[in-house]
């Protein structure tokens, strides 16, 4: 089955990296995810998009096994989410950068490298991959917001995960850095890593092979950027998304299947 990704058309996808079935999550008595089902093929870059509060972070947390779920099932790289061995192969970059502010960039990355049994050389490579080589000896708290969040990313990259879950990794970055990062994500996926990237910036959707659109805890649609433009009747993905929201109370369950698979 060829992927319909705009910039990597023709890639052959063989297996499913992530599959979510009828997921329900309740947080603080409030239903936060309702009946979410989606699949992510191996090696794809999938955008998880939706307005603030739509449940993006909750869905990512559920997939890495730190979110208590009410019902449904999640299969990650063939195993139920939360299985201990998955912690070796799944990387998670939280929305708020989660690194030690009082340690240097290098100490942070080396710590996560050590946990995963990676070498110091690999730590150095990860630091240069996010463009922080010159700042390696600086403490994390002395960095700018964008630099700080890249430390968090480096701590995930150093573990060389097969599935990488990124929660709004591009927030607060300038357009040049953002383009760099997306290029890097594309590179990772060429090497076989599967990426799920959340964002609420719709223009970033164009970098993804397929999109999962969340709204108020429900999966509105799973489709490619091209299909979104078509359905939303606009070349501008932002507008297309808005049109889609307005025109939808109809479920897109059929396209949810062919969109992501």
């Amino acid at each position: 089955m060829p992927s319909a990704g705009a910039h990597r058309a023709g890639r052959i996808v063989s297996a499913t990296a992530l599959s979510v079935q009828n997921l329900h999550v309740v947080r603080g008595k409030k239903p936060v995810l309702q009946d979410v089902s989606a699949t992510v093929p191996t090696g794809a870059v999938v955008g998880l998009l939706g307005p603030s509060g739509s449940g993006k972070t909750t869905l990512l947390r559920a997939c890495v096994g730190v979110q208590r779920i009410s019902s449904g099932s999640i299969t990650v790289l063939g195993l139920p989410a939360g299985t201990a061995s998955l912690r070796e192969t799944v990387g998670y970059v939280t929305q708020a950068a989660s690194v030690y502010k009082d340690l240097t960039v290098e100490e942070n990355v080396r710590y996560f490298a050590a946990i995963h049994g990676r070498s110091r050389i690999e730590a150095t490579t990860a630091i240069s991959d996010v463009g922080l080589s010159k700042l390696a000896k600086r403490t994390a708290q002395s960095l700018s917001g964008g630099q700080f969040s890249r430390v968090s990313l480096a701590c995930a990259l150093v573990t060389a995960p097969r599935l990488l879950m990124l929660d709004e990794p591009t927030v607060g970055l300038d357009p040049v850095l953002r383009a760099d990062l997306w290029a890097q994500f594309a590179q990772l996926s060429t090497n076989g890593t599967t990426l799920v990237v959340s964002s609420h910036v719709m223009e970033e959707a164009s970098h993804c092979d397929s999109l999962l659109l969340l709204r108020a805890g429900r999966l509105l649609a799973a489709l490619t950027p091209g299909q979104l433009r078509e359905r939303g009747q606009s070349e501008d993905l932002e507008l297309a998304f808005l049109h889609l929201i307005q025109s939808t109370d109809v479920e897109f369950t059929d396209s949810a299947q062919d969109g992501a698979a």
Binding site: V66, E88, V90, A96, S98, F112, I115
Partner: peptide
Amino acid sequence: TSGTLERLLTTPI
């Protein structure tokens, strides 16, 4: 509070 605990709990540690 720094979120590192949650992150550590997603690693093999």
